[in-house]
């Protein structure tokens, strides 16, 4: 079992595996995206209160979910790298950061574009919006930390500590709308009783969420491959791979 895990986690094996998996996730995300966009922009009816402006939900909510999901992936991978010195875990953590920052930026920007017509303001300092902004700062801090160290192992260790400390922010973001009275409304999908969104609007949302997830995996795998090559550039398997490509 453990040898099998080690084999999976070997950079060479992961490099080959990710090359094979990337097209699958790319196509899955394209198809899910097309279905989700058609469902969300064409099939779903306008909302009884918010009219067509509610369609921003199909970008905003998947981005916000991904901003949390990617952070947890980054912190967990960082933690695994920190404790067990698994090279692939460090690489996954490092490759996730800019994607997570992108999703956080999208969640904030589309939220702002939604808030202006509906709430009447681009921004308020309520607990949900503030904690999501802090998430963006955590990602940017992590990225700055990575580019500051020339030694990748030191960078990975420092980044992992930052990511693990910042993990406290994740439940704060999620529960902020319940713990404090915020301008942002409460949860729609994840509350314990039935989701309070009509089926015709919910299905495109779930499709978009899956599309974003596949997109993340696919781009993560591409980025991880570059990281592996840079990390392992002096190993025999990379030299073999390069000579096979150039001749």
């Amino acid at each position: 079992m453990f040898t099998r895990f080690n084999q999976f986690a070997s950079p060479k094996h992961f490099y080959d595996l990710s090359a094979r998996l990337t097209p699958w996730f790319t196509w899955a995300s394209i198809l899910l995206l097309l279905a989700g966009l058609y469902g969300g922009l064409v099939l779903a009816p306008a909302d009884y209160q918010q009219g067509d402006s509610f369609r921003i939900i199909y970008i905003h909510v998947p981005s916000a979910w991904m901003s949390l999901f990617v952070y947890v992936v980054m912190a967990m991978a960082g933690g695994i790298g920190l404790i067990w010195h698994v090279k692939i875990a460090d690489i996954i953590a490092r490759s996730s950061a800019s994607l997570g920052a992108s999703f956080t930026f999208l969640a904030l920007a589309t939220g702002s574009l939604w808030g202006k017509p509906m709430w009447g303001t681009w921004w308020v300092w309520d607990a949900r919006l503030t904690s999501e902004l802090i998430l963006l700062f955590l990602y940017l801090g992590y990225i700055a930390l990575q580019s500051a160290f020339d030694d990748r192992r030191v960078a990975a260790r420092a980044g992992a500590v930052l990511a693990l400390v910042g993990l406290v922010n994740i439940p704060i973001i999620h529960y902020s709308v319940e713990w404090w009275s915020t301008l942002h409304q409460g949860p729609t999908i994840t509350k314990f009783d039935a989701p309070s969104i009509h089926m015709s609007m919910l299905i495109p949302l779930l499709l978009m969420a899956l599309a974003f997830k596949s997109y993340f995996i696919s781009v993560l795998l591409i980025r991880a491959r570059s990281e592996i090559l840079e990390y392992e550039c002096n190993s025999t398997w990379v030299e073999e791979l390069i000579s096979n490509r150039s001749f």
Partner: peptide
Amino acid sequence: MGGYAFYVWSSYGLCAVVM
């Protein structure tokens, strides 16, 4: 988009550009 064209299409456009 029921008068919300600017907000809706800016959101989708921004998302497309970033992705």
